[in-house]
Amino acid sequence: MKYLSKSSVTKLSYLVTGCAITVHKALGPGLLESVYEKCLLFELEKKGLHVLQQVPITINYEGNMIDSELKLDLLVEDTIIVELKAVQELLPVHSAQLLSYMKLLKKPQGLLFNFYSDNLTKSMKPFINEHFERLPVE
C-alpha cells in the first residue's frame, strides 16, 4: 500500500499508535526498549504492515555517502519512522534525533513513544515535516 497523501499517512499513524498502545497495555512500563521494539514489530506485522527494524542511516554529506552508527528503530511502510524510548522523561535530544532521521531519510512523519510512561498516549509525540506538507490532502 502506498501512503502518498496526508490522510493516508495520518491513517497509518493512527494504526501504528494503536499497535503501540496494545503493546504498552500488555507489558506496562519498566522493560527494556528492545523488548517493546520487538513486540511492536510483531504487532505491526500482524496487521499486515511492512516494517523494517534497526535501519542503518547513511548520510549524504557534500555528495559523499557516509556510513554512520545511526540506526532508527522501526520504519513502517517506508513512510513513518518510529522511535521508541523507555526513559523516565523524554528530552529535547530525543525529538531532535527523530526530526533528523526524518530529514535525512525524507520521510513525512515520525512517532516518538516513551514506554516508561503510565499513559503512552499522553507521552507520545508525533512529528511531521516539509515532506508531509507537500503531500496532497487525499
Rank of each mutant, 00 (worst) to 15 (best):
K25G: 01
V93T: 03
E69Y: 02
P56F: 06
C39P: 09
E89R: 07
Q97C: 05
L84I: 04
E138V: 08
P126T: 08
L12G: 11
F115G: 00
D118H: 03
L72V: 05
E45F: 13
E133N: 10
S8M: 05
L104I: 01
Y101H: 00
L70C: 06
Q88M: 07
I59A: 11
F115S: 02
D78G: 06
C19M: 01
K122V: 12
K47H: 10
L41R: 05
Y116V: 03
V82N: 04
Y101D: 01
C19D: 00
K103P: 08
L112S: 11
K103E: 15
P126D: 08
C19R: 04
S8N: 12
G48P: 13
D73W: 09
K125I: 12
T79A: 07
P56K: 11
E33S: 00
Q53T: 07
T10N: 15
V76G: 09
L91T: 02
V76Q: 10
T10K: 15
E89W: 06
L75Q: 09
I59Y: 10
E45D: 13
F132Q: 09
S34G: 08
E133S: 08
L112C: 10
P56W: 07
K103H: 10
Y61L: 05
Y101R: 00
E45P: 14
T79V: 07
F113M: 08
S5M: 14
E83S: 05
L135D: 03
A20P: 05
K122N: 15
K46Q: 15
G48Q: 08
L112T: 07
L72N: 04
F113C: 10
E138R: 04
N64S: 13
K107M: 09
S95L: 04
V23D: 00
V51Y: 11
P108W: 11
L52E: 12
L111N: 09
S13P: 11
H94Y: 07
K25L: 01
E62G: 09
L15A: 13
L12P: 11
I81G: 11
P136A: 02
D78P: 06
R134Q: 14
Y3W: 15
L105M: 12
D67G: 04
